[in-house]
Measured scan of single mutants.
Amino acid sequence: DETGKFLVLALYDYQEKSPREVTAKKGDILTLLNSTNKDWWKVEVNGRQGFVPAAYVKFL
Results as ranks from 00 to 15, higher is better:
residue 15 Q to R: 09
residue 21 E to R: 03
residue 21 E to H: 05
residue 25 K to E: 08
residue 12 Y to M: 11
residue 41 W to F: 10
residue 60 L to W: 11
residue 4 G to V: 13
residue 39 D to K: 13
residue 40 W to S: 00
residue 32 L to A: 01
residue 11 L to N: 01
residue 6 F to S: 11
residue 23 T to G: 08
residue 40 W to G: 01
residue 57 V to F: 11
residue 32 L to P: 01
residue 39 D to N: 12
residue 13 D to C: 11
residue 44 E to S: 08
residue 8 V to I: 07
residue 27 G to P: 03
residue 15 Q to F: 15
residue 3 T to R: 13
residue 33 L to M: 05
residue 56 Y to R: 01
residue 59 F to E: 09
residue 12 Y to I: 09
residue 20 R to T: 13
residue 35 S to T: 12
residue 48 R to H: 07
residue 42 K to A: 08
residue 60 L to I: 14
residue 30 L to Q: 01
residue 42 K to M: 15
residue 53 P to E: 04
residue 59 F to S: 10
residue 36 T to K: 11
residue 36 T to D: 14
residue 26 K to H: 06
residue 55 A to E: 10
residue 12 Y to N: 06
residue 21 E to L: 06
residue 19 P to G: 08
residue 5 K to D: 08
residue 59 F to N: 07
residue 10 A to L: 15
residue 37 N to D: 14
residue 45 V to T: 09
residue 17 K to P: 02
residue 20 R to Y: 14
residue 1 D to Y: 13
residue 30 L to Y: 08
residue 9 L to M: 13
residue 39 D to T: 13
residue 34 N to T: 07
residue 54 A to M: 05
residue 57 V to G: 00
residue 45 V to I: 15
residue 34 N to K: 04
residue 60 L to A: 07
residue 54 A to H: 03
residue 13 D to K: 04
residue 46 N to L: 07
residue 26 K to M: 09
residue 2 E to C: 15
residue 26 K to N: 04
residue 33 L to E: 00
residue 27 G to C: 10
residue 48 R to C: 10
residue 60 L to E: 05
residue 53 P to H: 06
residue 17 K to C: 13
residue 25 K to M: 10
residue 37 N to P: 03
residue 19 P to C: 14
residue 33 L to P: 00
residue 55 A to C: 14
residue 37 N to G: 09
residue 33 L to D: 00
residue 39 D to A: 10
residue 56 Y to L: 15
residue 53 P to C: 09
residue 50 G to L: 04
residue 49 Q to E: 11
residue 30 L to V: 04
residue 36 T to C: 13
residue 26 K to T: 07
residue 35 S to P: 07
residue 60 L to T: 05
residue 37 N to Y: 08
residue 53 P to Y: 07
residue 26 K to D: 02
residue 32 L to C: 08
residue 57 V to L: 15
residue 54 A to C: 09
residue 23 T to N: 05
residue 3 T to W: 11
residue 39 D to F: 15
residue 50 G to F: 05
residue 35 S to I: 11
residue 5 K to E: 09
residue 34 N to L: 07
residue 27 G to V: 03
residue 43 V to F: 03
residue 28 D to N: 05
residue 44 E to R: 05
residue 13 D to G: 06
residue 39 D to P: 02
residue 1 D to K: 10
residue 35 S to K: 12
residue 17 K to M: 11
residue 15 Q to P: 06
residue 8 V to Q: 01
residue 2 E to H: 13
residue 46 N to G: 11
residue 20 R to N: 14
residue 58 K to C: 15
residue 34 N to A: 08
residue 20 R to H: 14
residue 22 V to K: 02
residue 17 K to F: 04
residue 1 D to R: 06
residue 1 D to P: 14
residue 20 R to G: 15
residue 11 L to W: 06
residue 38 K to R: 11
residue 17 K to H: 09
residue 53 P to Q: 04
residue 7 L to Q: 11
residue 56 Y to M: 14
residue 18 S to R: 08
residue 47 G to T: 05
residue 47 G to H: 03
residue 47 G to C: 11
residue 13 D to Q: 04
residue 40 W to M: 04
residue 43 V to D: 00
residue 10 A to C: 15
residue 27 G to E: 04
residue 23 T to D: 03
residue 30 L to F: 05
residue 44 E to M: 07
residue 36 T to Q: 12
residue 24 A to H: 05
residue 2 E to V: 13
residue 39 D to G: 08
residue 1 D to E: 13
residue 38 K to E: 10
residue 2 E to T: 13
residue 20 R to E: 13
residue 3 T to L: 12
residue 18 S to G: 13
residue 1 D to F: 14
residue 1 D to I: 13
residue 19 P to S: 12
residue 50 G to E: 02
residue 12 Y to T: 06
residue 18 S to Y: 06
residue 11 L to T: 05
residue 27 G to A: 02
residue 20 R to S: 12
residue 8 V to W: 05
residue 13 D to F: 08
residue 39 D to S: 10
residue 32 L to M: 03
residue 50 G to Y: 05
residue 60 L to P: 03
residue 7 L to V: 08
residue 28 D to M: 11
residue 30 L to I: 07
residue 50 G to W: 05
residue 47 G to E: 04
residue 59 F to A: 09
residue 18 S to Q: 05
residue 8 V to P: 00
residue 44 E to V: 06
residue 30 L to S: 01
residue 42 K to Y: 15
residue 19 P to L: 08
residue 6 F to D: 09
residue 6 F to A: 12
residue 5 K to M: 12
residue 20 R to W: 15
residue 1 D to A: 14
residue 45 V to Y: 07
residue 37 N to E: 08
residue 37 N to S: 09
residue 45 V to G: 03
residue 14 Y to G: 01
